[in-house]
């Protein structure tokens, strides 16, 4: 099996403060990988780097499957301006961007695909609604519809189920499972370990560096979780001291 992504001694961070240290490893094509870890462990940073939004401080990310273009990315609480007067259909249609670019139009087939994707996330009939009138769950369903439309081989989801009810989470998990069955590589940042153990074959436990990476049940063992918590707390301890000194 070929690798969708390979990390070589990858170090990431902001303003010269590293958030992820010396990450080595590979994500095989078609993997369904959960990235877990305490707050501040560098999970979101890692996803942003894979998406190409932040350059590595050191090391590299190899993407043999293609350029960053082949990666669909759903950021944590996507920074959508919900007061903007745009309707659900138009919003989802931006998922065709790579096809249409700045000026291209939508063919009848493209429009059909948009309706199919809305149907798949359970938003049929809402295509004319303004995005500002959607509930939080409907909003996330809409963003999933856009990712469906993007049809990317690699999909990154940053806390996709946070603040969603069980019903919505269940529906969206089904979509994730479908992506997995279609052979796409899915990497999701998640906090709900039960959910990870139930639906994700592999997990990466991160605490600024790799604590464990492998089958989800092993990686998320109580010992590993305790170790991850201690590692991040140790780091924060330094920050506390600085704050007291100031």
């Amino acid at each position: 099996m070929t690798d969708a992504l390979r990390f070589c001694d990858l170090t990431l961070g902001y303003d010269r403060h590293p958030a992820v240290h010396h990450l080595d490893g590979a994500v095989p094509q078609g993997d369904l990988l959960a990235v877990c870890g305490p707050n501040g462990a560098g999970k979101s940073t890692l996803l942003k780097a894979i998406a190409g939004s932040i350059p590595p401080i050191g090391g590299s990310i190899e993407r043999p499957a293609g350029a960053a273009g082949a990666i669909a990315y759903l950021p944590q609480a996507a920074e959508v301006d919900r007061s903007f007067p745009i309707d659900v259909f138009d919003m989802v249609s931006t998922g065709h961007w790579r096809k249409t670019g700045l000026f291209g139009g939508l063919s009848r087939a493209d429009r059909g695909r948009i309706f199919d994707c809305l149907d798949a996330v359970g938003l049929s009939g809402l295509e004319d609604r303004l995005i500002g009138t959607l509930s939080g769950g409907q909003m996330q369903r809409m963003l999933f519809a856009r990712i469906l439309l993007q049809d990317a081989p690699v999909i990154l989801l940053d806390e996709p189920f946070t603040a969603l009810d069980a019903n919505t989470t269940g529906d969206l998990i089904e979509i994730v499972a479908r992506w997995h069955a279609e052979g796409r590589t899915v990497i999701a940042v998640l906090h709900d370990f039960e959910l990870v153990r139930a639906h994700f074959p592999t997990a990466l436990l991160l605490a600024r560096e790799v604590v464990a990476w492998g089958p989800a049940a092993d990686a998320l063992s109580p010992e590993n979780l305790a170790r991850a918590r201690r590692m991040v707390e140790a780091f924060d301890g330094g920050a506390d001291e600085c704050a007291r000194a100031a």
């Binding site: 939004s53 273009g69 990315y73 931006t94 670019g101």
Partner: peptide, 23 residues
């Protein structure tokens, strides 16, 4: 008229535009 599409997307969802385009 020429900038309409990226300008709208840059306003409503800048993160997504950054993901799919350098515009």
């Amino acid at each position: 008229a020429l900038l309409y599409r990226p300008l709208v997307l840059e306003t409503v969802d800048p993160g997504f535009l950054q993901n799919v385009s350098r515009a």
